[in-house]
Design a binder for these strands. Structure first.
Lengths: 168, 168
DNA sequence: GTATATTGCTTCGCATGCGAAATAACAGTG
DNA sequence: CACTGTTATTTCGCATGCGAAGCAATATAC
């Protein structure tokens, strides 16, 4: 990933950023770097770092949090279903599940009906961790929505979904 | 990273997503997972994947693109300056620069005045790659801004900056 | 002028995560 | 029932990237 030129630093370069808020929409993309791309990359990186730091005690990363939350809603989901839900590749999720299993937060067991399918479930420890996850994400959500109206946040949500959809 | 429960899949779960566009602002964060967080994680992941796929021929990732763009603006920047600009840790950037150097896109040379400092510059190949980068990012920018007004994109940009700032 | 602190970068160990190939289990055809 | 194809997951190799530790060069203290 990358932030981009003059987008992410903590230095004096930040000052120059405040001006142009058009997101690069009126630029063919050749004259200067499209800002929204790097703004998004940077915002995500900070989100992931913040979650990682905050859940450090329990070894809960952003990805792990997503998995736990999903399993809370759909216990016994298959590996593929979880991968789909958290937008990860089956391969990438396999490793994550292995770590979560080693940490004792989830269990993996083949489905009796179709032993190719692995059913994933939360352990007691996993359910306990869930509370921490929800608390941390709730706090984070407060931080990132503070100062924005419901209408504005709706626009943001719509744009984020648009990005995900159009690049799929 | 993670997408989140029912946020990112390509399955029927998507249907349920369209409803609630408030970004979770009116929720303490305990009853249901804060959506904006996972929407952002997913959007970024798709951005990065798209850039990676698109620049595959030249081995240009999102991070590499950011570095090249920054160097175009500030040739001879130090490693730390580049890291700051693209929001990467010095450690992470070190590896990336090594790969870019091996690919022949950049050069690294100690500053004569302070030999701790490494000056990074684009090679001829690096400058050539820059054109491709700008073209790819321009196309991407078009895709992700299409269908949104300047005002809406301004809100999005302001929100993304807010997120980056408040989590720093 | 030597000891100490600081700075800038790299190395190391690890987590994350992708694509491609391998593996295992099921499904359909003859 | 073997043969083939499909599906679900894992393994492997690699890229990315962080924190901690290490190293080299400079700056500061005494």
């Amino acid at each position: 990933m990358a932030g981009g030129p003059r987008l992410a630093g903590r230095t004096d370069r930040d000052a120059a950023v405040k001006q142009d808020d058009d997101g690069g929409a009126h630029d063919g993309g050749r004259r200067r770097p499209p800002r929204l791309i790097f703004l998004t990359l940077t915002a995500e990186r900070r989100l992931r770092r913040w979650i990682g730091r905050r859940g450090e005690d329990r070894g809960l990363s952003a990805a792990a949090s997503g998995v736990l939350l999903y399993l809370a809603t759909r216990p016994g989901a298959s590996t593929g279903e979880v991968a789909d839900a958290v937008d990860a590749s089956p391969a990438g999720l396999s490793g994550l599940l292995s770590r979560l299993e080693k940490s004792g937060l989830i269990t993996r067991a083949p489905d009796p009906g179709d032993r190719r399918t692995i059913r994933v479930n939360l352990t007691a420890d996993g359910k306990a961790a869930l509370g921490a996850v929800q608390s941390v994400l709730g706090e984070l959500n407060g931080k990132i929505t503070d100062g924005f109206s419901g209408e504005e946040l709706a626009v943001v949500a719509r744009w984020l979904r648009h990005v995900a959809e159009v690049l799929d």
